[in-house]
């Protein structure tokens, strides 16, 4: 059982219960317009450009040859160029997928962090689910089904209320 403060004493809410003054730095998904930064385009761009250049050079070279055996090496070079081009595209997509996955992870963390306040929100909004209650003249916090509350009109308590728990229903 956790006692927050002595009953009957007028104490302001603890510092820790107040919301933080400034929100944590937002995830990149909120600030950047695209999953890709400029720096991410360097390697895929180099590979794609290299692939196109190699393909063109190989095509020009093998077009001049009339013997099949002399063309084979340039044909292989053209295929390698195409491979470099495709590899650049695959890298580009992998980086994008990674950034989107990180974005979802950041969003999930933000949700968990912000939904921490959801525990306090029902207290603020009338009619929401509240764990502990009390009644006029009572100095302790009770569960809604506590026997000591029978016949009394109860009111919900905020989660940071500093009154001690009822000894009857605390361990129930």
């Amino acid at each position: 059982m956790t006692t927050l403060a002595t009953a009957g004493r007028t104490a302001p809410p603890r510092e820790a219960e107040a919301p933080p003054a400034r929100p944590r730095a937002a995830g990149r998904y909120l600030t950047d317009p695209s999953p890709w930064r400029r720096s991410y385009a360097i390697v895929p761009g180099i590979l794609a450009t290299l692939g196109v250049v190699v393909l063109i050079v190989c095509w020009v070279q093998l077009s001049d040859k009339v013997i099949w055996r002399e063309q084979v090496s340039w044909l292989v070079g053209a295929c390698l160029g195409a491979g470099a081009f495709v590899l650049g595209g695959v890298l580009w997509l992998l980086v994008g997928l990674r950034e989107v996955r990180r974005g979802f992870r950041d969003l999930r963390h933000d949700q968990e962090r912000i939904l921490g306040l959801a525990d306090l929100a029902p207290v603020v909004r009338a009619g929401g689910p509240v764990t502990l209650v009390s009644a006029p003249g009572m100095q302790r916090a009770h569960r809604p089904d506590c026997l000591l509350l029978r016949g009394k009109s109860v009111t919900p308590l905020p989660v940071f209320d500093d009154r001690p728990r009822c000894g009857v229903c605390a361990d129930a």
Binding site: A7, G8, T10, G137, L148, C166
Partner: peptide, 11 residues
């Protein structure tokens, strides 16, 4: 509200 009354009717 000031200091709360000392009398208690519960627990």
């Amino acid at each position: 509200a000031g200091p709360a009354p000392a009398r208690s009717t519960d627990g």
